[in-house]
């Protein structure tokens, strides 16, 4: 049965191979006078960051000048992340040194938010640092739709590489948190958004005009918040998604996924109330509880997970001054 999303899916879902012609991509980028920055948020990623920088710098700056800037925004790694990244030629920043007057919060979203101030590109591509099978497609596959189509503002990655499947139709989608939490929530409240195949993927490319106008939860909820806020302000046509084939990375424990879900749910509920979809939401609890057992003894673990949010960057005076923009 066709769904309302079929048209959007067909028009806005790509495979990275559609953008393999980098010379053409660069020609268009120059015609449109665009600059592109790559932001890699890090926290103790010394084992994988070197490879990412080497590949992106050589392939997408030296060989094909698609990127104008490669930056690592680090949350205070205690391993050699910053040293390794700098040794291979990335611009390395410590998040607490960016907009220091605004203080510093812990979380990946903080790095992503501060990158908007620190980096200069008209388009910012965010790529996680823990990808083992890094390849230039992780960048050109995401910026491609933005360069080709001026109406596209936000491009999300998804990964779909079936190894073997006997029938014509196969399930496709995201990880456990996506399928058990986010997709049911989208299906309930924002059915159009359920066309985004992997809403939680950490790789996306976004135009500055959009990034500067959306809030950034500093923790687990940042990707969900982006989708809801961009959808709310610019509609479904602002989105595109690109299949990047396969992403090899660390697997998370179920407990870690529980914490992630707790953070995402906070972000989601806050937005439901803000958008007027639900009213009179009681004060929500910010303590996540889960059990540990030893023999017949059970212990309740508690962890505080506060999904704090940074305001849209356009509201920060220093940003408006640096980029000469009005609120």
């Amino acid at each position: 049965m066709a769904t309302t999303n079929d048209g959007w899916l067909d028009a806005n879902t790509f495979h990275h191979s559609a953008f393999w012609d980098l010379l053409k991509l660069i020609e268009l980028k120059e015609q449109k006078n665009l600059t592109i920055s790559l932001c890699i948020p890090t926290l103790n990623e010394a084992n994988t960051i070197g490879k990412e920088i080497v590949i992106f710098k050589s392939e997408l700056m030296t060989r094909y000048p698609l990127l104008d800037e490669i930056a690592v925004i680090d949350s205070g790694s205690t391993d050699k992340t910053r040293e390794v990244a700098a040794s291979f030629g990335a611009d390395v920043y410590l998040d607490e040194e960016i907009l220091p007057e605004k203080g510093n919060k812990r979380g990946k979203g903080e790095n992503l938010w501060k990158a908007i101030y620190q980096l200069k590109g008209d388009i910012i591509v965010y790529v996680d640092a823990d990808i083992k099978n890094i390849h230039p497609r992780f960048v050109y596959g995401l910026v491609g739709p933005l360069i080709y189509n001026d109406e596209t503002h936000y491009v999300k990655a998804f990964y779909d590489r079936p190894l073997a499947y006997s029938q014509g139709i196969r399930p496709s989608g995201g990880g456990r948190v996506t399928e058990i939490l986010v997709r049911p929530l989208f299906s309930l409240f924002f059915p159009e958004l359920s066309a985004v195949i992997q809403p939680l993927s950490g790789e996306y490319a976004v135009r500055r005009q959009v990034l500067e106008r959306i809030a950034f939860p500093i923790g687990y909820g940042v990707e969900t918040a982006h989708l809801l806020d961009v959808y709310r302000q610019w509609g479904m046509s602002a989105f595109a998604q690109t299949d990047l084939d396969r992403r090899v990375h660390r697997n998370q424990t179920t407990v870690a996924l529980g914490r992630m879900s707790f953070g995402i749910l906070q972000t989601f509920l806050v937005r439901l109330q803000k958008f007027g979809i639900i009213n009179d939401l009681a004060e929500i609890n910010r303590i996540y509880r889960h059990f540990e057992a030893q023999d017949r003894k059970y212990r309740l673990n508690e962890k505080s997970i506060q999904e704090e949010e940074r305001p849209p960057m356009i509201e920060i005076a220093a940003y408006r001054e640096k980029f000469a923009v009005d609120a």
Binding site: V54, I55, K57, S58, T62
Partner: peptide, 10 residues
């Protein structure tokens, strides 16, 4: 160096 290492990785 970058180009050589990138080729080596790939």
């Amino acid at each position: 160096k970058d180009m050589l290492l990138a080729n080596l990785v790939m």
